Amino acid sequence: MDEEQLDRIANLPKVELHLHHEGAAPPDFIRQMAAAKGVNLSHIFDAEGRYKYRDFTHFLQVYEAATSVLKTPEDFAKLTTAVLEQSAEAGVVYSETFLSPDFCGGGDVGAWREYLHAIREAATDAEQRLGITLRGVVTCIRHFGPEQAKRSALCAAETAGDWIVGFGMGGDEGRGHQGDFAYAFDMARESGLHLTTHAGEFGGPASVREAIQDLHVTRIGHGVRAIEDLRLVDNIVDQGITLEVCPGSNIRLGLYSTMRHHPIAKLRERGVKVTVSTDDPPFFGTTMKDEYLNLARAFGWDEEVLNDIARTSLEAAFCDAATRDRVAKKLEPAA
């Protein structure tokens, strides 16, 4: 694959479905926010100013330390602008971001509304300036437990609509079971929200099966370890479930040694609807542009394949039909 083709691939319009809002905060943004508030976060950065962590558990601790300086709706408005600017720079035209009421008002509905208003205003401004459309997926935090998840689900249900379009769960897959959170997911479903949950990253195939059976999701965050159980893979195909695959994240956290060893190509060949996202891009040293280029180099995927993945992503997006149709025009090849 020559440099000219790689350049065209890098500049393709992209759709991202798996992006943690706080996890997308550029290190410089968090450093500046911490300095302005007199908070010492030097321990979460390496000598080059990047986030540093030892393993997934430590990653969660660093993530929460970085998030700790985001205290007000105005902070989250500034964060939204920073996140969307870097996404647009990578060619993203539509993004769904995971937002946790636990970090935006402590799970209180009234406070959550204030944070959400500020985030939406910043997103609207970015769309006008940069042409990138953002929608929100409220997430509960698995290691905060089922009772706290109910508070997040209530925040989601109270603000469901044209902008808050889904509900999901992130956090430590090693804590509890998917079914422990069924009440929160039922509440979100009854409010008309679409559902996703993290599974099949560290939890293995069993966690994917639990997510499908107990939470009735239509998308799964990561899900890549389903490849270890081909009957499960076939079930995913039969049910039309979409996987929000984050290859760079999986490699950085040690699930796979290199992109060539990543199962995304095998999953796609077997008929799974796979999408591509960055997860927590500055934590994993990636962008959507990097993801596309690395996939092209590893698997020989050309513009046609990657355009197909972008269209698959848009079809799986939780937004309304009018938004989907508008974004679809941006994925059409230039005349």
Results as ranks from 00 to 15, higher is better:
residue 2 D to P: 04
residue 14 K to S: 09
residue 26 P to I: 05
residue 28 D to F: 13
residue 28 D to E: 13
residue 32 Q to N: 13
residue 34 A to F: 13
residue 36 A to H: 11
residue 39 V to M: 15
residue 50 R to L: 11
residue 69 V to Q: 08
residue 77 A to H: 07
residue 83 V to P: 03
residue 91 G to C: 03
residue 91 G to T: 03
residue 98 F to K: 00
residue 111 A to D: 07
residue 114 E to N: 09
residue 115 Y to M: 03
residue 115 Y to V: 02
residue 116 L to A: 01
residue 126 A to H: 03
residue 127 E to W: 11
residue 138 V to N: 01
residue 146 P to Q: 07
residue 148 Q to L: 12
residue 160 A to S: 11
residue 163 W to C: 01
residue 165 V to S: 12
residue 167 F to Q: 00
residue 170 G to C: 08
residue 178 Q to I: 02
residue 191 S to H: 15
residue 192 G to C: 04
residue 193 L to Q: 12
residue 198 H to L: 06
residue 200 G to C: 10
residue 200 G to R: 08
residue 204 G to Y: 09
residue 206 A to K: 05
residue 206 A to T: 03
residue 208 V to D: 10
residue 208 V to R: 04
residue 211 A to E: 06
residue 212 I to N: 04
residue 214 D to W: 08
residue 217 V to L: 12
residue 224 V to W: 14
residue 235 N to D: 13
residue 238 D to L: 02
residue 240 G to T: 06
residue 241 I to Y: 06
residue 248 G to K: 07
residue 257 S to M: 08
residue 260 R to W: 06
residue 265 A to W: 11
residue 268 R to G: 00
residue 271 G to R: 03
residue 273 K to P: 01
residue 275 T to M: 06
residue 281 P to K: 00
residue 286 T to F: 12
residue 289 K to F: 10
residue 293 L to F: 06
residue 294 N to R: 13
residue 297 R to Q: 14
residue 308 D to T: 14
residue 313 S to R: 01
residue 319 C to N: 01
residue 320 D to Q: 09
residue 321 A to Q: 11
residue 322 A to R: 15
residue 335 A to L: 10
